[in-house]
Design a protein around this nucleic acid. Structure first.
Lengths: 107, 107
DNA sequence: CATTAAGGTAAGTAAATACTTACCCACTAT
DNA sequence: ATAGTGGGTAAGTATTTACTTACCTTAATG
């Protein structure tokens, strides 16, 4: 899993909607599909993408599969953002702080 | 600008590559295009998307436009991640901590 | 002024992707 | 065993989207 897959996964509104539904409580595929404006197979396909991005996990329960959110994917993303920003700072240095700080205080 | 646009913007590898180039130092469109495997107009189009997502800003300098990274977009994203996770926790509660903490202890 | 350089926009194309229906397999229960 | 339910997968379609070339406008330079 890489942050690339996480970005891809979260770029789609339906997938975000599914993930936000799971945020409240774990759900089965059928439950999720009932809430979404798309077909059940579509939801299955979205869940596969979310799973590959480590944003959800499935737990088989007899006949059904219970999906819940997983932390890894979001962690990966947070990590990317952090390192991105810190590298920006170390490159631009005080320059950027002045420029984007929210108004030029130096002038 | 919403987090949705930020996710969309960062989902594309070329756009991430452009943004990562800008992370080192501000650059003109021509410079960026020279580094990327795509044409200059393509870069222009990507820059528009990045700008709409508040990930970059352009500063006209005579004939050229100097692009640099902007904090807003990434901030929006960080905020989304934070609130997402905190809402997950308040819903799942200790449940999730146990479940994803690194193995099911209950079974 | 005429020319060159920089870069945004338009229009069209090709590739990716989000959907659909149809099908199939695994469990549950009669 | 046989329905019935839940859900993954296949195959095809339609929409998005990332790219291209061609064009146009603005700024620097002879």
């Amino acid at each position: 899993m890489t942050y690339a897959e996480v970005f891809t996964a979260l770029a789609d509104p339906t997938r975000r909607s599914i993930l936000e539904a799971l945020r409240d409580r774990p759900r089965t595929v059928g439950e999720l599909a009932a809430e979404q404006p798309v077909s059940r197979p579509a939801v299955s396909q979205h869940l596969r993408v979310l799973e590959l991005a480590s944003l959800v996990t499935a737990e088989p329960q007899g006949n059904r599969r219970l999906y819940s959110v997983k932390r890894e994917g979001l962690d990966e993303l947070r990590q990317y953002l952090e390192s991105f920003w810190s590298e920006t700072l170390s490159a631009y240095g005080a320059e950027i702080a002045r420029r984007v700080g929210g108004g030029n205080t130096k002038s």
